[in-house]
Design a protein around this nucleic acid. Structure first.
Lengths: 249, 249
DNA sequence: CACTATTTGTACGTATGTATT
DNA sequence: GAATACATACGTACAAATAGT
């Protein structure tokens, strides 16, 4: 017989466990309200501080949200990749991960996403991508006020591709890595986003990839996506590390 | 001139921000100790509850750990994928992500890992993989007491591959997804791990992949990894969803 | 080894700002 | 606008746990 080492489990952790389990098993659906803090402290038979610490942890985990003065109590949130994003960003910024690794990971994810999309896309999604691409063409010269109609169309295109992959994990990781990478280079990048020729290149790339996705040419779509990322960002990677990226092309 | 909408930011969040920023920028190295709660409440000029709520959030995020009665104060933890694992697990168990998506993601990650390893592996890492494989062969018949010497050798093999990829993000995500997937099927899976024929199949697969990695045949290594995963786990996926996996083979 | 000082964990009371009805 | 219920934040107090003497 073997015994497990015992671990003193804090009161607030037990509270977290119970609530989280209720949410995860669906006994507490998104949108429903938790009892008020005073009610919770009565039900769990703990003090207010304990309840609050538990709620803080759950809030940080994206499970619930509590607003000051809301008489309906803390709200159970729908699952969202926000926490995933924070986790990956933390891991990335912990200096163990550089731009090269990040870009490599992104190339990997995006190429896979396009390969999947080429296989699984519906006519509807294809139409959505075409629409987004047309809108990008229309806004080639629109000024970048109001967050840029061009960028917005770009996002729409990516959303359509994301829908087509049918895998939220791939999509979420891709988005996250994209965001983190952008943050890392945004100082070096002198808002090149509003240079017209760059926009034209982007549109051309997207058009190529859309063709590949339409024809179901998954290999081509994947390599195109990789190549595009490499073309855009390789200049920000030290030459010594570019060898890491080559294997994916 | 445009104004940003203001958002009431809680006191504990400001505390979290400051500490987290200090850790992320390296001003607080892993292993160092934070000031005690009473000290912190003096420095931030907030109450102890506020400090504690902040510490709870940071602890849940895997940034620090505080133990009751430790006069040295909360410990700054080294970056680890534990939180990433929890985030992915939460997202996976929230019913939006099924075993199929998880397996698809894992196939994608592992095949990429092997492709990278085939390109970047050093002789040293190759030797490590060979050693691990030999140990797996040696323990083909060892009983599964003490956590299984066979499984341990298996893990060593994967570690060597992970080292070769040189991308901690790919490795961490792979590990996490592997863990979550295992949890999801572990009820269905009647500890098949100790059936001898399965072990032989695993060894054979590993040997094939090692060959591919040795020869630098990245494409072959990648497809082998995918195929192996599909062979093992496809039976646990509803037939209707297997179409999602096929595009990767 | 026991003791002590310090720190964390928990509890309770109170004041204040806020969202809902 | 008033009333109400709530979350937020502060302060104090005591128990439990830990490290170092």
């Amino acid at each position: 017989m073997k015994f497990e080492p015992v671990t003193t489990v804090r009161a607030y952790e037990r509270v977290v466990e119970q609530i989280e389990h209720a949410v995860l098993t669906g006994r507490l659906a998104p949108g429903t309200r938790l009892p008020s803090e005073r009610e919770l402290m009565a039900q769990f038979e703990v003090s207010r501080s304990t309840v609050r610490e538990a709620l803080r942890v759950l809030q940080a985990a994206g499970v619930v949200r509590s607003r000051a003065g809301d008489p309906r109590g803390p709200e159970v949130l729908p699952p969202s990749p926000t926490t995933l994003r924070k986790s990956i960003r933390r891991l990335a910024q912990s200096a163990h991960i550089g731009l090269a690794e990040l870009l490599q990971f992104r190339m990997l994810l995006e190429s896979s996403a396009y390969r999947l999309a080429a296989h699984l896309r519906t006519e509807d999604q294809l139409a959505q991508m075409e629409l987004a691409l047309r809108r990008m063409r229309d806004h080639l010269d629109t000024d970048t006020t109001d967050d840029g109609a061009f960028s917005q169309a770009d996002v729409e295109f990516h959303d359509a591709v994301a829908q087509a992959t049918q895998n939220p994990l791939v999509v979420a990781c891709g988005e996250v890595v994209r965001g983190v990478a952008m943050e890392l280079i945004e100082n070096k990048l002198a808002h090149a986003d509003d240079r017209r020729d760059l926009r034209e290149k982007i549109v051309a790339h997207h058009a190529e990839m859309l063709d590949a996705v339409r024809e179901g040419a998954s290999e081509r779509a994947g390599t195109l996506a990789c190549q595009a990322l490499y073309d855009y960002y390789a200049e920000y990677i030290p030459e010594s590390q570019r060898a890491l990226l080559a294997p994916l092309l």
